[in-house]
Design a protein around this nucleic acid. Structure first.
Lengths: 182, 182
DNA sequence: ACCCTAGCTGACCGATCGGCCAGCATTTGA
DNA sequence: TCAAATGCTGGCCGATCGGTCAGCTAGGGT
């Protein structure tokens, strides 16, 4: 027994999340993950029932976090809700950069997974919060959520310190949404 | 001879651009394209040397258009350049929605193709145009270019009339870049 | 009438994919 | 000490991938 089951699973997930983010889910083979994790392909399938289960598990922590954010937003209204949503989503996206990238790459195939947050619900809540501010709040919400996702995935090109990135993302989001920034 | 060579090539490209945009380059097989185009897989490879050649050809019109835009921007400075870039990129992205979606889905694998525009050059030019306006203009440029791309690909969710979309995209971009909007 | 050629196809190929399984090696508990 | 359980692996399977090829069919030029 080289590594404990817990360690092995963690190593596999670490390799998988990096490779999925770099080359996409379809573009990463089980052999790629195995090589990166330093074990055999068969060993992967001993610890995980199949390739999909690996994806499910590494996305698992994302869902509850988004749900919690949505719960927090439920008690707020209008501009207050929008500002809280911006702060929350920027924070979550920074903490789950690789997962966000994976989601965006195969968004059409992954969007309806049960373990993922209800993006439609979040979008709707944001749209409601901003209603009356524009003829097309829907477009703005989509716009900055998209911006948020992609910019976080440009890790290679964007070599900004995390604090600068966080500030710029929040400012850009608030501006896009038509809210005043300090 | 069922269809002329010209018609057949056009039909194949039409099927391919839609399927690549919907399911990604890797997620679309030659058989998928053939079925959609109403011919055999072997017929595809009679008209195109390989799968990659199909992608190359349907992306071909994008490169020169972006190069032309970059040329136009070369004669401008500062805010004027930024506003022209916004208008130009919004226009191009609206005209090449499917191609932009394909590019964004496999951006890491496709970014360095010779037939594609020099995105780095464009980004650099925009960054120059905005220098002095922010501590991190690079982040803003990336942000709204990303936003622009993704928002255009959300065709299913976003059912806004093109004029509204164009106006919202331009306004959002200008705001993100820190420029005033009427 | 003829043939030549352009358009097209089914059958097939090697490579690679996700996944399965019999069995080996190491640790653990009685 | 020894058997059971756990971690792990090489080898194999069927499916599917992109791509090749010999050959069929239908017009068009002479």
């Amino acid at each position: 027994m080289a590594r404990s089951a817990t360690t092995m699973r963690a190593d596999i997930l670490d390799s998988a999340v990096r490779l999925f983010a770099a080359h996409g889910f379809r573009g990463t083979s089980l052999q790629d993950i195995a090589t990166d994790a330093g074990c055999s392909k068969a060993s992967l399938l001993y610890h995980f029932t199949n390739k999909d289960a690996i994806l499910t598990e590494l996305l698992a922590p994302v869902g509850p976090e988004f749900a919690a954010l949505e719960g927090r937003l439920a008690g707020l209204d209008g501009e207050e809700a929008a500002r809280a949503a911006v702060a929350g989503l920027v924070d979550l996206s920074l903490r789950f950069r690789l997962q966000v990238k994976i989601l965006l790459q195969d968004v059409d195939a992954l969007i309806n997974r049960p373990e993922l947050p209800d993006v439609d619900g979040l979008t709707e809540r944001l749209t409601d919060a901003l209603s009356g501010r524009s003829a097309a709040p829907q477009a703005r919400v989509w716009a900055w959520m998209a911006m948020l996702g992609i910019i976080l995935t440009s890790a290679g090109e964007l070599t900004l310190p995390e604090e600068t990135l966080r500030a710029e993302l929040s400012r850009g989001a608030l501006r896009t949404l038509g809210l005043q920034t300090d």
